[in-house]
């Protein structure tokens, strides 16, 4: 490390002035950023779209390295894994029989009750190309943009379960707000008792359960799925399992691991909002009066 070679007083002075100016500008930006959101959102989208291709190229070697490590791990444990899979396969075959029986029964009931079956949801697959890049936010960029059919609000899932939802889209890339982010709120249902709650991220690895009824009997290990309330995210997507922290607080261990997000699906879910209006008529009318029977006839006829 050599000493500063340009210790000219003028240079020092201009450096100091520039530093003060930049400090003021940064402070102003911090305050303005909260007011002028539209301008900054546009700027953010432009920068994100420009950076997404670069990040995608840079993330390829990372993904390749990860695959090599995973494969090496798999070779090391191939015998144990084989044993485990054999046992699991036997167990799953029993479940398959059970599922087929239930599926047949469900189809029969649905036919009997004339149930409106949920439409299948279309999706676009994409890759996560960036990391969150900061300790206070949990967002990632995916290479699915408006041109591929992404839009704000759509749910994003990976092979394990719900990962988050899209909060901003550009032509080529979108930003996904993960479940663990401080701003994430997802309406969920806790099975099997169907208690409703809000899954609230708080910048830790395990999101909290908010607005859970006081009397609810939720216990660790219960499954958490999306409730579909609000119409943004389809109902029934697997989210995670209830866990209890050391302090007794109930939190959720998400199925989707934000440290291993790679390929994801953007669900193009459209809430069935076009419901026929059933406005009550302005004047309530009773059923049309039947032609009046001659007085006294009715009871006698009934008696006869």
């Amino acid at each position: 490390m050599e000493p500063n070679r340009t210790a000219l007083p003028f240079r020092e002075f201009s450096h100091r002035i520039s530093l003060i100016f930049m400090l003021t500008l940064a402070a102003a930006l911090l305050l303005l950023g909260r007011a002028e959101t539209y301008v900054f959102d546009q700027a953010r989208q432009v920068v994100t779209d420009l950076a997404a291709p670069l990040l995608e190229i840079a993330s390829r070697p990372v993904a390749a390295t990860r695959r090599i490590i995973e494969r090496t791990d798999e070779y090391a444990y191939v015998f144990d894994e084989n044993e485990r899979l054999r046992a699991e396969n036997a167990r799953l075959l029993e479940w398959k029989e059970e599922a087929l029986r239930l599926q047949a029964r469900l189809a029969r009931y649905e036919a009997l009750l004339n149930v409106q079956v949920d439409q299948s949801i279309e999706y676009v697959s994409g890759r996560v190309v960036s990391d969150s890049g900061g300790p206070f936010i949990d967002t990632v960029l995916v290479n699915v943009g408006r041109e591929q059919g992404a839009r704000s609000g759509l749910a994003v899932i990976d092979s394990d379960g719900l990962a988050g939802r899209i909060v901003a889209t550009g032509p080529k890339a979108s930003r996904v707000l993960l479940l663990t982010d401080l701003n994430s709120r997802i309406p969920v249902v806790i099975e099997p008792a169907q208690y409703k709650a809000i899954l609230a991220g708080d910048n830790t690895s395990w999101p909290r359960l908010e607005y859970l009824p006081v009397q609810s009997a939720v216990s660790p290990g219960d499954r958490v799925v999306t409730s579909g309330d609000g119409g943004l995210i389809p109902a029934g997507l697997p989210v995670g399992l209830v866990i209890q922290t050391g302090s007794g607080e109930l939190r959720v261990q998400t199925f989707s691991d934000r440290g291993r997000l790679d390929f994801v699906r953007v669900l193009q879910y459209e809430f069935p909002s076009e419901v026929k209006l059933q406005d009550p008529p302005s004047v309530l009318e009773g059923p049309a009066a039947e032609p009046a029977a001659p007085a006294g006839d009715g009871p006698r006829a009934a008696a006869e």
């Binding site: 911090l30 950023g33 953010r44 994100t48 901003a168």
Partner: peptide
């Protein structure tokens, strides 16, 4: 600023922190 724009967090947060 570039970091703030890319990160999706508060605008100006890291610009301010890094400059200070």
């Amino acid at each position: 600023v570039l970091f703030d724009l890319l990160s999706g967090g508060e605008i100006g947060l890291w610009a301010f922190v890094y400059t200070v």
